[in-house]
Amino acid sequence: MKVKLHIWRQKNNKEKGKFETYELNNVLEDMSFLEMLDVLNEKLILEGKEPVAFDHDCREGICGACSLTINGIPHGPEKATTTCQLHMRKFKDGDEIWIEPFRAKAFPIIKDLVVDRSAFDRIIQAGGFISVNTGQAPEANSILVPKQNADNAMDAAQCIGCGACVAACPNGAAMLFVGAKVSHFAYLPQGQPERKLRVLKMVEQMQKEGFGNCSNLYECEAACPKEISVRFIALMNRDYLKASCSEEKLEVINNE
């Protein structure tokens, strides 16, 4: 099949970017979207041109490295699917495809379609963990987790940290990502000791990174390749409110 690609090209964060148009005539339906870009890059290299920079790693939908906003939708048109798992059969012969980087102030462009998502790492460092001493794993059944909580925690833990939620949000908000990470621990007994401090610190870091505010547009949920639900944002809001009136809040204020 044939496709016409409009791809965002940008040398680095300082220079202005623009769309370049490329035509590919030998695309197979069974190629993944990234394989299609590989074909384009091989062609560009043979022509002595600069290949298109894009992020990827596992190519099996679990690492969260791939990105791309395809025809205005982060990770493209297929529901609950990462770009690496999107296949060209979802497009028609002769389609025009617009490929842009994930856009948000907190995700500065590094090159072409590659953006810096390290803001997410700093949010995780602020509280997305439980403090335990390493050593032997305890007996699995020594701490009981109700089935419903385990299910909810697993739903939230599906988040692969790809940043599509931020890319989809017209406000560049990271509430779905942070909501998922906060909720994942909030549903488990191991998450309880640091529950309030965690939500305060992660939200504070999220704000420092320059993400926008939530307007409850729910675009994040629709774009998320792991179908993380906005009810985790609601849970985070509730936890944050409770934590704001707690001793942990004073601790955060005093440490500032």
Binding site: H6, Y218, E219
Partner: peptide
């Protein structure tokens, strides 16, 4: 703040869930 957090708009934007009223 929200306008500041999304300084560059997409050339193509397809809304999936956000309604006109939202």
């Amino acid at each position: 703040e929200n306008w500041g957090a999304k300084p560059t708009k997409y050339a193509v934007k397809n809304y999936l869930k956000a309604k006109f009223s939202s």
